[in-house]
Design a protein around this nucleic acid. Structure first.
Length: 289
DNA sequence: AAGGGCCTCAACCGCTATAGA
DNA sequence: CTCTATAGCGGTTGAGGCCCT
């Protein structure tokens, strides 16, 4: 089946737009509004395909488009949303005012993807790379040694191993109550999102095996909520569903030693603030009570 | 200064979804 | 229900600029 071209091929200009063409398009759209893209080029005096006009407007000329460098906050949002939604650029763009899907896609491919790789995170799965390449081996998550980090994070993942808990923690990490709400609804959570966010008694709804740390112990071990690397590791752990079998078999005493050693050394070197992280989580949902 | 390789990003391509006749 | 036009999406391309040797 021959596909109907979106416009006649002959006489149609391709390639970079000139300032004159831009101005013609802007003038026309300011006068007549968006729509009617097929007939727009002729009416606007442009030798362009209607689709090309629409893209030029949507990705470059629209007055509400924000130009310039992405902020660290925008970077963070893109990474987090990509972990949740994948290459759904248009969906991601709805959370970044003034940014187009095309711009975000380009920025991801040229910057953020490489940045994650440098951090040892697979940009597709958002898991640590050595987790995706070496099944059954312990993750190498930090320069100070992996076992403490991996074990700690696996404990967190185990604590939140039900879908609803995992989604909730993802929302906490993202710091976006809308996403918490969406994910909770998608997973069929019976509690309302607002209740989840605000209720101090939320953790009572989910039993946590005494095999792992108590809530209080977890509180004592957590670190700075602003630490992006940690959040990425948490997301990586969460995204593959929790602890590996090996960790859960270890005795709690051994794990306490590993994790506390790891956190102590990390905290000293990187000047992380455990108290701040704990209080931040407590204030958001009251899980760690 | 030259030129080769790399990077960025605007633009294009091909496809699907949707609306309306 | 079918067909067509249009909008929208994600992947890919390539021109141009930058950097390194």
């Amino acid at each position: 089946m021959v596909r109907t071209p979106c416009c006649k091929e002959e006489g149609i200009k391709k390639g970079a737009w000139t300032p004159e063409e831009d101005q013609k398009l802007i003038d026309y759209l300011q006068l007549h509004g968006e729509g009617g893209w097929r007939t727009l080029p002729e009416k606007a005096g442009l030798k362009r395909c209607g689709k090309s006009c629409r893209l030029r407007w949507a990705n470059y000329l629209r007055p509400d488009i924000k130009r310039g460098e992405f902020t660290p906050e925008e970077d963070d949002t893109i990474i987090r949303l990509h972990a949740l939604k994948g290459n759904k650029w248009a969906a991601i763009a709805t959370s970044l005012a003034g940014r187009t899907d095309n711009e975000i896609k380009n920025y991801w491919n040229t910057n953020l993807k490489k940045r994650l790789k440098r951090k040892g995170i697979d940009p597709v799965t958002h898991k640590p790379i050595n987790l995706t390449s070496q099944t059954g081996s312990e993750p190498k998550l930090h320069k100070l040694g992996s076992s403490g980090s991996a074990r700690l994070l696996n404990r967190v993942a185990s604590k939140y191993s039900t879908d609803s808990n995992r989604d909730l923690l993802t929302g906490i990490i993202i710091g976006n109550s809308t996403i918490i709400a969406d994910e909770s609804q998608n997973s069929g959570d019976v509690d309302s999102p607002s209740k989840n966010v605000t209720s101090p008694g939320f953790s009572d709804n989910f039993s946590f095996s005494g095999e792992f740390f108590s809530n209080e112990e977890i509180s004592d071990l957590y670190m700075n909520v602003d630490n992006v690397d940690l959040m990425e590791e948490l997301k990586g752990i969460l995204s593959y569903g929790g602890a590996d079998a090996g960790d859960t078999k270890d005795s709690p005493e051994v794990n306490v030693t590993y994790e506390r050693d790891f956190l102590d050394s990390w905290n000293e070197e990187d000047d992380l603030d455990l108290e701040k992280f704990v209080s931040s989580l407590d204030s958001k949902i009251g899980v760690f009570v």
